[in-house]
Design a protein around this nucleic acid. Structure first.
Lengths: 240, 240
DNA sequence: TCACAAACAAGAGCACTGCTCTTGCTTTTC
DNA sequence: GAAAAGCAAGAGCAGTGCTCTTGTTTGTGA
């Protein structure tokens, strides 16, 4: 006859029942919070509603999350990481030499994730709550997409740029661009980087307009528009 | 001795005291709501707080606005119109032949207004509230900026375009572009219009990134970056 | 093994929100 | 002048984030 204590202890958690219950509840709260975010958006996220769904008193949740903002912060981090995963996976599947393909993968993965998770996207790329200050934990996950873009930009030669700035860029802008950390073993051309930064903003501007309804009634289906926009940007970057 | 009733009646309102009081209160509510929006952002807008500042019971305000959403709708319309005024004024001050100058005026006016009124900007170009459906009154004011852009695009010749799409654009996209109403007495080139639409999204993507903090710590001062982005777009449009 | 400390769940409560309904008063209109 | 419409105030409902107290359960050191 097997020892029930042994099987119990072999479950997964070496710690006591209390620590195991805590981990379980944290996971449950996170799961339900994500569901509520997906359904009702960030403004509709309610600590009391989550407690209700868990059959708990709302005050009990405050032993796990110090505030609603802390819950939101975790959702922000998770959303950044989900988008980062999607973009990194899509880009990594491309031939390294196919620079245009890599950027297309990045852009389409971004748009696809945003369309599949509009409330999560709005949480991280929409208007921030005036009082809310993003904690330090959110900045690393937030840079994952632009890091992939940086890798691509570092592989683009300035020789192919079809358009050059009429005048040299001001020293302040040069300094800002030069201060951007380069990928491991790579390096940026300053003009490519400048164009890349603006293309980055354009990508999210396009997704914003589509998701937030600015394109409504004019581009109800934005597939072709989005693809054409990418093609134009790749042409400006001089990559086929 | 002048008749006090006469001077009173000559004030401005030909209607009775009740209609005049109503107009005054509507104006007061609107003013205070704008102040609260500017200070606390849209999520912080509270009907009760406005009533408190007016020395009224909160229930009294519901004779003037059917709901908080109606108040927000008015603020949205006013914000669109303020931005529209700023952009139209700036663009109208330019020499008609100076196409680059006209677009620069549009772009800088947009950014300036957004920086001066971040909460109003976030209200109209940030993430929409999931439940809120924009009423019909908001769509006309919302198109004012892009209408000015359309006027500019109609004056751009496709002959100057330095970059062309590698392949013809799909028929669906052509149809969407052709359905866009043209300015009075003007006409669009399809490729110019396509590029213009993406430049439109890029403009607001840049402002979003700057205002919502995505550029933080990298481009704390985005003046030069923004100007360079405009120059790049003008080069892509083939206008000096 | 036992006592003590820490962790925990529940409930009441506070201050706030949007919104509704009733009550009494004032202005307009017929 | 009377009826009707417009209006302000207050109470009240259902909801929110969050705190504090109370009683219970679990982990830990003597």
């Amino acid at each position: 006859m097997p020892d029930p204590c042994a099987t119990h202890a072999a479950d997964q958690a070496p710690q006591g029942v209390r620590a195991r219950a805590r981990a379980q509840l944290l996971a449950d709260v996170s799961r339900i919070a994500r569901e509520h975010l997906a359904e009702s958006g960030a403004p509709g996220l309610s600590v009391r509603a989550i407690a209700r769904e868990l059959g708990l008193a709302s005050s009990a949740l405050y032993r796990y999350y110090p505030s609603r903002d802390a819950l939101l912060t975790q959702l922000i981090v998770e959303s950044y990481n989900e988008l980062g995963d999607a973009v990194e996976t899509a880009e990594a599947a491309c031939d390294r030499a196919d620079i245009a393909g890599r950027y297309r993968a990045l852009a389409h993965a971004t748009r696809s994730w945003a369309r599949a998770n509009p409330n999560e996207y709005a949480l991280i790329y929409g208007s921030p709550v005036p009082g809310y200050a993003a904690p330090q934990d959110t900045v690393d996950p937030a840079t994952r997409v632009v890091t992939v873009l940086g890798d691509i930009l570092a592989d683009i030669s300035p020789d192919g740029l079809p358009l050059r700035l009429a005048e040299q860029m001001p020293a302040s802008l040069q300094a800002q661009l030069d201060a951007i950390p380069t990928p491991l073993g790579g390096d940026f051309d300053r003009e490519v980087l400048l164009l890349g930064v603006t293309v980055w903003a354009k990508l999210f501007g396009m997704v914003n307009f589509e998701l937030f309804g600015t394109f409504n009634t004019v581009f109800d289906d934005a597939d072709a528009l989005f693809a054409a926009s990418i093609d134009l940007d790749l042409a400006a970057l001089g990559v086929t």
